[in-house]
């Protein structure tokens, strides 16, 4: 296998030189300070992983990654930024659909291992792309949508949009959500970040660990950049919609998530593209561990 190819974009050349050296062994590295040049390279070359800065004079990183998504869908996208602002992180989820949101200053070993993981996934994606493997239409159970939000407008829109094709479950609390998860896998999760008094971040992270096919949409009034970044990396949420969200936008995103779920299910390599990072918060690790354990016991009892 030839060396994987990286594309690095940052408006500071010293960042580029430094990162290139980190991947001196084992990779081919392209780098540029100009996002337009980066788009040209993406068009012309096979790029495994693109690592972009967010704040640049010509173009925001999330915008560049959105273009990369269209230009070269198999390429894995990583944002590396020193600025944790909410708009940028929302755009990186919804438009850039980034694999990881990494912060400057970065940990050299962490970045190395994330890029290595991404490169391997990209390689597999490229292989599938060339085979153009089509969806194997096995008789499929009705998709299930889990709502974890006390807001009735959320539930109503979900029912109106997907009610005809999906089984919809509205979980009132963490216990209820767990029982539903135990019964059968979930296709799409629509969740606020708070379910009553419970911070459901760990549940979303656990769900994605359990079943990488599940697509998560977060709709919330809760705007905390560092928690969002956590959810990008550790739950690979696919959409983050700040409340109040217009019904049209919400419905469109629900549709595309269901579509995404079908795609991911038919092409296992797409699941890897949403591989999650380990949970970093110690308290959440404990919560997720308990959740997983209880869920396992429940499943054993139900499924037997």
């Amino acid at each position: 296998m030839s060396k994987p190819t990286l594309l690095l974009i940052d408006d500071e050349e010293r960042i580029l030189r430094s990162l290139r050296m980190l991947f001196f062994v084992g990779y081919r590295v392209h780098m540029t300070t100009d996002p337009h040049e980066a788009i040209r390279i993406l068009r012309e070359e096979k790029i495994h992983v693109v690592v972009s800065d967010q704040r640049m004079p010509v173009m925001q990183g999330s915008e560049l990654l959105r273009i990369a998504r269209e230009t070269s869908p198999a390429t894995m996208r990583i944002l590396l930024t020193g600025y944790s602002d909410l708009d940028a992180s929302i755009a990186s989820v919804n438009e850039g659909e980034v694999f990881r949101y990494l912060m400057k200053p970065w940990n050299a070993e962490e970045v190395k291992s994330v890029v290595a993981e991404a490169a391997a996934i990209a390689e597999a994606s490229f292989a599938v792309q060339s085979h153009t493997e089509t969806a194997s239409d096995v008789a499929i159970a009705k998709p299930r949508v889990l709502i974890m939000d006390h807001d009735e407008t959320t539930a109503r829109t979900v029912h109106e949009t997907l009610g005809d094709r999906c089984e919809i479950v509205w979980a009132s609390d963490a216990q209820h959500a767990m029982e539903e998860l135990a019964k059968q896998d979930i296709s799409v999760v629509v969740s606020d970040l708070m379910l009553g008094e419970t911070n459901v971040g760990y549940i979303l992270k656990t769900i994605k660990q359990l079943n990488p096919q599940t697509q998560c949409i977060v709709v919330t009034t809760f705007n905390d950049t560092s928690r969002l970044i956590d959810l990008i990396n550790q739950a690979q949420i696919t959409r983050f919609l700040p409340k109040p969200v217009s019904k049209g936008i919400f419905a469109r995103n629900l549709e595309s998530m269901l579509e995404r779920f079908h795609m991911v299910r038919s092409q296992p390599v797409l699941q890897k593209r949403q591989a999650v990072a380990p949970i970093s918060d110690p308290q959440e690790q404990v919560q997720a561990g308990n959740f997983m354990g209880m869920l396992g016991r429940l499943r054993a009892r139900i499924g037997a």
Partner: peptide, 11 residues
């Protein structure tokens, strides 16, 4: 500060 700190630390 994060930008220079980023590459200095990496270097």
């Amino acid at each position: 500060i994060n930008t220079p700190l980023g590459y200095v630390q990496n270097n």
